Simulated scan of single mutants.
Amino acid sequence: MHLRGPMNVSKLAVYMLPGDFYSPQKRATIPSDVLDAGHIPDAVDGPVAHVALAEPAKEVDLPVIRFLNNSTVQKRTGPGSCSIIAAAPPWSRIASYTSAAPAAATGFAFLANLGDERKSGTFDYSFGNSLGYVIGNGKTVASQNTPFDGTLETSEVEIAVFTDQQCRTGDCEARPRATAHYGFGGESKVFLIEFQMDHYDNVGTDQGMLSDAPAWWFLNAAIPRVLQYGNDKRNIPCSCWSSGCGEFDAFEVLGRGEERAKSTIHRQGNLEGGDSNFFRRPVGRMLKFAVIFHNFNITASVLPDTFDFSQTLTAGQIDNIIAYDPDSYTHSLFPIGD
């Protein structure tokens, strides 16, 4: 994910399901006296909400249940067995950040297109700067991963936030000698942010840059690891952005000093566009926002001020966020297909 100023970020968090697949496997048989007792031991994954005996109990083989989505799962194993209604598991926080002094991050790496072989990343005249680690304010290359200090002063400053796991040699699509980290993979994932976007103009002399236009967006991780902006010196695209590997603008202020922030999806040659929904730019106050990739949809929504970025999120909390309200102008839904 990527952040562009002017923006103050107080919290970030990423959540994933403990397993986003269904994989039937054999378990050891469960004795009939256990079934008669009306409960299932720990051999079955997930909390058990109810057991109903169909016939006099016998020894049965039960599958391991992995969860594909938030729905309750019910399995029957035939005559002489039981039905199990298992509650969906909570979503676990896999990365978190707070700007409260001293700034602290777990599971995140903070980078920018400022690579320098003397510290981290690389530079050449064909492709410019690669990704490299940055100091807390995002303005200067660093030699190691350093927690973001929470402030991107102007639209001239942006950072890329990856997992804290470095790519193994040949394991990621990345430019040679770039500082390459894994992105946040998986079909189901939740990103939460608490932030504000006060008004500050650029201070440099580059008149071609957007000014006072903050944004939060997501790219296929291969794009910034190869070349986020521009083409090579022969004007040939290097990353997969132009061939459709994707960008989602969770929120973006589209013009200098604008007050409305909107969501848009970009998939060249595929699904593209946005809707008329927006939220008012939070100036002088914090706002909480969620982006959820789940069930082949992307949900972008403003959250209540009381929403807690806790260690886990329940299936009910996620269901409430992704329950699309067509009458809400602060909630957007983007189908992305399979």
Rank of each mutant, 00 (worst) to 15 (best):
H2L: 10
H2M: 01
L3K: 04
S10C: 06
L12A: 01
V14D: 02
S23W: 08
S23D: 12
P24K: 07
R27D: 13
T29A: 07
T29F: 08
D33P: 01
V34L: 13
L35W: 15
D36S: 10
I40K: 03
I40L: 15
A43F: 04
V44L: 14
D45K: 04
P47F: 09
P47R: 13
P47N: 14
V48T: 15
L53R: 12
E59L: 03
L62E: 06
V64D: 12
V73S: 06
S81D: 14
S83W: 12
A86T: 15
A87R: 11
A88R: 04
P90E: 15
S92T: 11
T98N: 07
P102I: 01
T106R: 09
A109F: 08
A112P: 02
G115Y: 05
G115H: 07
D116N: 15
R118E: 14
F123W: 09
D124A: 08
D124S: 03
S126N: 14
S126H: 04
G128K: 03
G128P: 08
G128I: 03
L131T: 00
G132T: 11
V134Y: 12
G138E: 07
G138K: 05
A142N: 14
Q144L: 08
T146N: 11
P147I: 08
E153I: 03
T163S: 15
G170P: 12
E173L: 05
A174G: 10
A178N: 12
G185Q: 10
E187T: 06
S188C: 04
S188F: 01
K189I: 01
L192Y: 06
L192M: 05
Q196W: 01
D198K: 00
N202H: 11
N202Q: 10
L210H: 11
D212A: 14
A215P: 00
F218A: 02
L219Y: 12
Q228R: 09
G230V: 03
N231I: 00
N235L: 10
P237T: 13
P237C: 03
S239Y: 01
C240Q: 09
W241D: 08
S242A: 12
S242G: 13
E247N: 05
A250F: 07
F251G: 09
G255A: 11
S263Y: 07
T264W: 11
G269E: 03
G273F: 09
S276C: 00
N277K: 10
F279W: 09
R281D: 10
P282H: 11
V283F: 02
V283Q: 10
M286I: 01
L287E: 08
K288S: 05
F293W: 15
F293I: 00
N297K: 15
S301R: 14
V302W: 09
F307A: 07
D308P: 01
D308L: 02
D308E: 14
F309L: 02
F309A: 04
S310C: 04
T314V: 02
D319R: 10
T330A: 08
T330R: 04
F334C: 02
F334H: 07
I336A: 02
